[in-house]
Design a protein around this nucleic acid. Structure first.
Lengths: 228, 228
DNA sequence: CTAAAAAACTGACAAATATCATATTTTAAG
DNA sequence: CTTAAAATATGATATTTGTCAGTTTTTTAG
């Protein structure tokens, strides 16, 4: 079993504040698993009883609205933790997580995390900072959802995806989402998302072949996102 | 100067985890002030450098979208803290706070809070729980904003306001918001909010005289909020 | 009390978006 | 390779919501 010390999650998450001994204990009680594309990490309403460390792959975190439509709240990348919120509130999860591609994750049981939170104040502050960051982006998302048009939100989403997932310096968006997923991120009907994507393509602002989307004119996309 | 020990904010916020000595120190470095209706507690982009304890009155917390429209994110009641998020991220505030009526608040400087956060893990866990709660409701709000119609959001907002602000057992909503504020909570044009309020009145689901709104048929309002 | 300003309201119309129906293309399974 | 299923795409239309213009009511300042 690999030690947590070298793990990408340790480098990028609040786990970096853990000491060697704490990591060793964590390493001893963690479980690793692979999650195939399309599989569910946890359901809405499920008691997770721990946190997931995302080592490889990406998952979408979503929630079903009372209308029965699915809203994707965020995409979680390698290096991040998942499930902190529910762990801290000591509640069932309010969200569902599904793998977008094949994943490698570790699961750390709740007790272990709570113990460290209480003893290691740097770790607690780290988690607090992560949560504060999530809260800020959630607030921003609320404003966007409430005030921006679907067209603006699509432009903004493409820019977000680009800055989060591009590996080269091109305009390629290196994450492959279905039109349905894109619609569920921006909160619109699938047909509307498709139509607006086609518009952007016609105007040479983006290019795409299937799920492979490339941004051709970033400035223009930014203008659209800001309402011009 | 009043001691923090008996304060309503201590009873209801994470400050309840502070010891007597910690409270005394806090009491010594805090400043009290009154904020008149309509006055600004802090602006978007301002460095707050501390947290506000809300002893009396209500304030609205909002953010201007790129479109120039104002979105109210939440209403803060007596007993709550305000400004924790920015303090923990060590950033300027991303939100603006304005008094909805005359307020009594205390201000606790940042250093004092940070000191206690690092030393008192129960306090840190309390703040963490508050933040987790805020994050959950922000996520829910995102879903509502993205997926619900304006009519649904209005119905839901009226129900929220009622459960948060009713003092008697009647359907009265004991907080007085302008039509503009209501529109800025649900994320719509003022005229749309007015029209939908009038519709609900015509259908005898609510009653209102000016800003004084009463829910007549809660069941029906719940149905509307859930899309029927 | 009165005038001016602000807030609430209403109607007409335009724009954005959802829905439904259907066609085409891509993907997956045998 | 072939066929069925799923995803993507497009058109027509209905619904929702925003915008603008104007009226009425309420609030505020003097």
């Amino acid at each position: 079993m690999s030690k947590c010390e070298q793990c990408i999650v340790r480098q990028f998450s609040s786990l970096k504040h853990l000491s060697k001994e704490e990591l060793l204990r964590m390493s001893a009680c963690k479980t690793s698993k692979t999650v195939k594309k399309g599989e569910v990490l946890f359901e809405e309403g499920e008691h997770i009883n721990g946190v997931f460390c995302i080592k490889e792959g990406v998952c979408k975190v979503s929630k079903i609205s009372e209308n029965g439509r699915n809203q994707i709240i965020s995409l979680i990348q390698p290096g991040n933790l998942l499930g902190e919120r529910s762990l801290i509130s000591d509640e069932a999860s309010n969200l569902k997580a599904v793998a977008l591609n094949d994943m490698e994750v570790c699961f750390i049981p709740k007790d272990e995390i709570v113990k460290d939170l209480e003893k290691n104040s740097a770790f607690a502050m780290g988690v607090l900072k992560d949560m504060a960051k999530s809260l800020k982006s959630a607030d921003n998302l609320v404003v966007d959802m409430a005030q921006k048009t679907v067209k603006q939100r699509l432009a903004e989403t493409l820019l977000h995806l680009h800055s989060k997932f591009n590996t080269d310096n091109e305009g390629n968006i290196n994450i492959y989402l279905s039109r349905d997923d894109i619609a569920n991120i921006i909160g619109t009907a699938t047909e509307s998302a498709i139509r607006l994507l086609s518009d952007l393509k016609k105007k040479k602002i983006i290019e795409f072949k299937g799920k492979n989307i490339t941004i051709l004119n970033k400035d223009e996309l930014e203008k659209i996102a800001n309402g011009f």
